[in-house]
């Protein structure tokens, strides 16, 4: 299992302005006859430059909350504001623009485009942002260098190791300078040594001023964060700093 860094070595940075404000959010799914309450009234504030872990067993509403935070889904009821904008009532394409500008996704299975090289994968969010080709090449190359893949920019995903693939995915999440980085089990498909490397990279990103939200069921991964939210049966069971 991936051990957390020694507590005394970790700094807790002062938090910035409010990014996400969730108030009494509920989400219902209709599964045939049955109505499933995935979230039953969750309230949550996330500030800039927080490092947050969301934990919970399967069926706790963890994935639903993550999809909501990532603007992939909208709540059935309650209020969700992202940087002061009301997300709950947004249309599909508005949500797509929010995801493009404000959120960087890191997936458990990396979700890279198999036939495109690292550079093109990282450029993708910039294409959707309407950035001109020469600018986006330059920015994508820069970010890949920052995550330690400066010499791998023209490799296809199948020519990269698992850790390198996740670094490409992280570079892709960073490239549009989003307000939050949302990682879903980022070490789930990696061996423990590589997992530690990725968590170290997250630590660096946090120290550079990024806002990180990591969804995980692994205690050791969650303990790298500065704040842990535990969900249980669609409700927040606990929310507090790591100690």
């Amino acid at each position: 299992m991936t051990p957390a860094a020694p507590l005394e070595a970790r700094q807790v940075r002062p938090v910035g302005p409010l990014v996400i404000a969730i108030e009494d959010v509920a989400k219902l799914y209709q599964m045939g006859e049955e109505t499933i309450h995935a979230l039953r009234g969750v309230s949550l504030n996330i500030h800039r430059n927080e490092y947050l872990a969301i934990m919970g067993p399967s069926g706790s509403g963890k994935s639903t909350l993550m999809n909501m935070l990532g603007c992939l889904d909208t709540p059935t009821s309650g209020r969700y504001e992202f940087n002061g904008q009301d997300v709950a009532g947004m249309a599909d394409d508005e949500l797509a623009d929010i995801r493009n500008r404000e959120i960087g996704f890191v997936f458990q299975t990396f979700n890279l485009l198999a036939r495109s090289d690292a550079l093109r994968n990282v450029e993708l969010p910039l294409i959707y942002a309407g950035i001109a080709p020469h600018l986006r090449h330059e920015r994508a190359r820069q970010v890949l260098e920052n995550v330690g893949l400066g010499n791998r920019i023209h490799h296809k995903p199948n020519e990269l190791s698992g850790g390198q693939r996740q670094r490409v995915a992280i570079a892709r999440a960073l490239v549009n300078r989003p307000s939050i980085i949302l990682a879903d089990e980022p070490t789930g498909n990696l061996d423990s040594k590589t997992g530690i490397e990725i968590l170290a990279l997250f630590e660096d990103l946090y120290e550079q001023g990024n806002t990180l939200i990591v969804v995980t069921h692994e205690e050791s991964v969650a303990r790298n964060a500065r704040r842990i939210i535990r969900l249980h049966d669609g409700l927040i069971a606990s929310d507090g700093p790591v100690n």
């Binding site: 992939l72 797509a96 995801r99 493009n100 996704f105 979700n111 959707y128 942002a129 549009n176």
Partner: peptide, 16 residues
Amino acid sequence: TKEIGTRKALGARRRT
């Protein structure tokens, strides 16, 4: 389908 999901997560609109 999964690629479509990824592209949408990265900001692809419907028309894209």
